[in-house]
């Protein structure tokens, strides 16, 4: 597992990087990777998302290959793109989504924020609203895209959309929930600390059979 902190990165550049790594992971030439980053402000919408959820026609929306509806990314929001080979871990997309929720709940708890799941509404929530969004794309059972946790963003950006396709969906952040500034660096550190152990716990790697090992095998002579 490689965890890379990309800092602030344009959506397109990060998308290209994801595509390249996913191809490598599917071919077993790259290790599973978690990319952590922030995007300059951008609106994206899932493949099946409804553009009617974009309330301001002047907003430019990128349609991308993930589940879910429209959302916003921008500074102050911790974006995580886990590129994980689910075929080594049980081929279960729902469980993977629940794992991401568990991770985010624990990260929020680390900042003293009690967040929870709401059945049927993937993501994590507090009484104040939606704290983190989840949207995953999968190619050859390798995941891309992932989660967006509101640490301390300008929440006004969500006013121009129905976040996740939910009308008047309240959106909140760790900073708002805490009533005091939560540092991005600290949250990132917590994600780095929790991610791999929790993944191993929720979606353990199956011991590879000799045959499938062969695809990772290398070199000669």
């Amino acid at each position: 597992m490689v965890i890379t902190d990309l800092g602030l990165m344009e959506f397109d550049a990060a998308y290209a990087l994801q595509q390249r790594l996913v191809a490598g992971i599917a071919a077993s030439t790259e290790p599973e990777t978690l990319l952590l980053l922030e995007h300059p402000a951008v609106y994206t919408i899932g493949s099946g998302g409804n553009e009617a959820n974009v309330l301001d026609p002047s907003v430019e929306v990128r349609r991308i290959n993930r589940g879910g509806d429209v959302t916003w990314h921008g500074p102050g929001q911790l974006v995580g793109y886990p590129l994980i080979s689910l075929d080594r871990r049980g081929c279960d997309l729902h469980r993977y989504l629940r794992f991401l929720e568990e991770l985010l709940i624990r990260v929020a708890a680390d900042s003293g924020v009690a967040a929870r799941r709401v059945p049927g509404r993937t993501g994590i929530w507090t009484d104040g609203g939606k704290l983190a969004s989840i949207g995953v794309g999968c190619r050859r059972w390798v995941t891309m895209h992932g989660f967006a946790l509101n640490v301390a963003p300008d929440l006004a950006a969500f006013d121009l959309i129905n976040p996740c396709g939910i009308v008047a969906c309240p959106v909140t952040s760790l900073t708002r929930e805490c009533g005091a500034a939560v540092a991005m660096a600290e949250v990132r550190k917590t994600v780095v600390k929790l991610f791999a152990p929790l993944l191993a716990e929720w979606m353990p790697e199956k011991p590879a059979e000799r045959d499938s090992i062969a695809d990772v095998v290398c070199l000669g002579r």
Binding site: G46, R66, G67, G68, G135, G137, R139
Partner: peptide, 8 residues
């Protein structure tokens, strides 16, 4: 798509 995940 199932839940918030898509598969090619």
């Amino acid at each position: 798509e199932t839940d918030k995940a898509t598969m090619e």
